[in-house]
């Protein structure tokens, strides 16, 4: 160290780089997109990007809570595939007795949510009660669900009955006032998630648990229950995302939901949530999801860079986001 060390920055420094960073990145992407292609800002394209973001987005909101509380869930992509397969099997099996109609759709939805809840509770139980590391548990359950859906589909594809599929389609393709249902549900999940994270005791308990579980314990926070709830909520949200996803293709196979877990985790981190826990923000996660979707969208709309480089650019963005987080720590 030399004598010319810079004095730490003092005084008012808001909004900080960690707040501005993701927003600026999103605006830059929007500007680039608008310059490259006139159709980029059209209602059709924006709706398309949002609808495609919705599945990952709904899951990523749940992942924000899990990561904030100091956990991780690698199993969500496989879990979504498994739930989709289960949902299709249940609905097909109930078709002869129930016929096509609202009740059978509701049965499918309840199946998805209950399956998601149970899967989340199982992850949470193994992690909190048995004290096995989250990475190990969810790596294991990731393999289990992926294998189960492959087995249920007998290596092929599980397809929803054709008539049922036509009836169910509007859940993905229709909406209110031109806004499709996945976008509406995504929006609601985000609003509720943001309020819980920033304004409720549970959100505080998540941040305290992830920040320092000893302090949380000594502050009478039920650390295990806080974590368990985060996994269960994530499971439910995977179920919700699956409800939106199934009518899109009407099928599930071994390749359904592949890498969703990593996309969700990446969105959470780009949004400014700290990977080791202790600090999370749902609105940031939304921006992270949008950034990842927009990169793909822009590459598809323009021929400036090959769309095959989508993954590379996403990778750079993820690493950049983490470097910015580190700088935030170094400054303070």
């Amino acid at each position: 160290m030399t004598d010319t060390t810079t004095s730490p920055t003092t005084g008012l420094r808001f909004p900080s780089m960690s707040v501005l960073g993701p927003i600026v990145a999103l605006l830059v992407l929007l500007a680039i997109g608008a310059m490259m292609n006139a159709n980029f800002l059209s209602a059709a394209n924006i709706t398309n990007v949002l609808a495609r973001s919705a599945f990952i987005g709904i899951i990523a909101v749940g992942m924000t809570f899990v990561i904030t509380a100091g956990g991780l869930d690698l199993s969500v992509g496989s879990m979504a595939a498994f739930i989709a397969g289960l949902m299709i099997l249940v609905m097909n099996a109930a078709l002869p007795s129930m016929g096509i109609g609202i009740p059978i759709i509701l049965l499918g939805m309840v199946t998805a949510i209950v399956a998601g809840l149970l899967a989340g509770l199982l992850n949470g139980f193994l992690i909190t009660t048995l004290g096995i590391e989250a990475f190990i548990v969810t790596l294991g359950s990731m393999g289990i669900y992926r294998s189960l859906v492959t087995w249920l589909a007998d290596g092929g594809t599980l397809s929803l009955d054709f008539g049922l599929r036509s009836f169910y389609r509007p859940v993905y393709f229709d909406g209110i006032l031109g806004v499709s249902w996945p976008i509406i549900v995504f929006f609601l999940v985000v609003i509720i998630g943001e309020i819980i994270m920033s304004r409720s005791a549970y959100g505080r308990h998540c941040a305290a648990t992830g920040s320092n579980e000893h302090v949380a314990h000594y502050s009478n926070v039920n650390v295990k229950r806080t974590r368990l709830i985060s996994y269960a909520a994530l499971g439910i949200l995977v179920g919700v995302a699956t409800i939106m996803y199934v009518p899109r293709l009407g099928s599930a196979s071994a390749s359904t939901g592949v890498l969703w877990e990593l996309e969700a985790i990446a969105a959470v981190i780009i949004g400014g949530t700290v990977l080791k826990g202790g600090f999370g923000r749902v609105w940031g996660t939304v921006i992270g999801v949008l950034i990842l979707s927009l990169i793909g969208n822009i590459l598809n709309l323009t021929d400036f860079v090959s769309p095959y480089l989508n993954g590379a650019i996403q990778g750079v963005i993820i690493i950049l986001a983490v470097i910015l987080q580190r700088e935030r720590k170094a400054v303070s």
């Binding site: 505080r204 941040a207 305290a208 920040s211 320092n212 000893h214 302090v215 314990h217 000594y218 600090f279």
Partner: peptide, 12 residues
């Protein structure tokens, strides 16, 4: 290590 969340503010 057990009393306070050092990364957080006084209010929380």
């Amino acid at each position: 290590l057990r009393g306070l969340l050092l990364e957080r503010g006084m209010r929380e």
